[in-house]
């Protein structure tokens, strides 16, 4: 259906007005403030240089802890998400099961991992365990959704073929759905881990371990040169993990499209 003539222009004007009103409301049309902000940013940047490497040993240790939080969190999240994603798969279960499971996953996913970390700091006390649990819970919600969507996308012919041998539902999951979705599962697991490394690097803001504790501390102490060192380290690790997961993908993924028959 084509929208009526001229409606595009009307929509454009409406959006522009909404943007201007929003800018004014949040104080970004205050020219003096913008200029002041730019000057402050300049000073902030200047204070960052040169980065001070003296804290590198401490930061390296915190970085290892950050990766551990992400790793443990991803692992626990995955272990919980896999069975739930299968329960949410319409190939295996009816809407009476898939509906509530999807709702739980959506609920868990709505809350950011940083907030879950606060909850777990209250529950298990300050430190990386709270961070890992926060990451795990968020991963559960997010991975659960990614996984059941991948399971839904499994070639229906494979499902039919394996059902046809007289397989039970559990066998169908084990021999058709999970192995057929292996590519997607691995890709999502790597994506989740990369995401969680970034999420874990701010867990320290709420006392849940990792390099975030130092990031926040350096900001509060106005030690921007130390902050830059920490940021560079984080960036380096993120790039490294990105590369490593690309390598893993190349090594373990099987080709999606089969070669031409008779080849």
């Amino acid at each position: 259906m084509r929208p009526p003539r001229g409606s595009g222009r009307v929509l454009g004007v409406v959006l522009l007005v909404a943007l201007l009103v929003s800018l004014a409301d949040i104080g970004m049309l205050d020219l003096g403030r913008v200029v002041r902000g730019a000057r402050n940013l300049g000073e902030f940047a200047a204070a960052m240089f040169p980065p001070d490497p003296s804290s590198l040993p401490t930061l390296a240790e915190a970085m290892v802890e950050t990766i551990e939080i992400a790793f443990v969190g991803t692992a626990i999240g995955f272990a919980l998400a896999l069975p739930l994603a299968l329960l949410a798969s319409p190939v295996l279960f009816g809407p009476a099961v898939t509906g509530p499971v999807k709702l739980v996953l959506a609920g868990v996913r709505t809350v950011p991992s940083l907030f879950w970390a606060i909850v777990f700091v209250v529950a298990v006390g300050l430190g990386p365990a709270a961070g890992a649990l926060g990451v795990a819970l968020y991963s559960l919600g997010y991975l659960g959704k990614l996984l059941y969507e991948t399971f839904d996308g499994v070639d229906p012919e494979v499902v039919e073929a394996v059902r046809s041998v007289g397989a039970s539902r559990a066998q169908l999951a084990r021999y058709a759905i999970v192995p057929e979705a292996a590519n997607g599962v691995l890709a999502q697991l790597l994506f989740m881990f990369e995401y969680n490394v970034r999420a874990s690097s701010i867990m320290g803001f709420v006392g849940a371990g990792g390099i975030g504790f130092y990031l926040l501390g350096y900001i509060q102490l106005l030690r921007y040169d130390l902050l830059l060192t920490a940021l560079i380290l984080t960036l380096a690790v993120v790039i490294l993990i990105d590369r490593a997961s690309a390598l893993l993908r190349r090594t373990f993924l099987f080709p999606v499209s089969p070669p031409a028959p008779g080849e």
Binding site: V158, S164, S168
Partner: peptide, 23 residues
């Protein structure tokens, strides 16, 4: 019944074979 076990005495090879590629 829907999602129930099917009779193994009938083998079925679909058009694209339905093999599990990663196995």
């Amino acid at each position: 019944p829907r999602r129930g076990r099917l009779d193994p005495r009938v083998a079925y090879i679909p058009q694209q074979l339905g093999l599990v590629r990663s196995l």
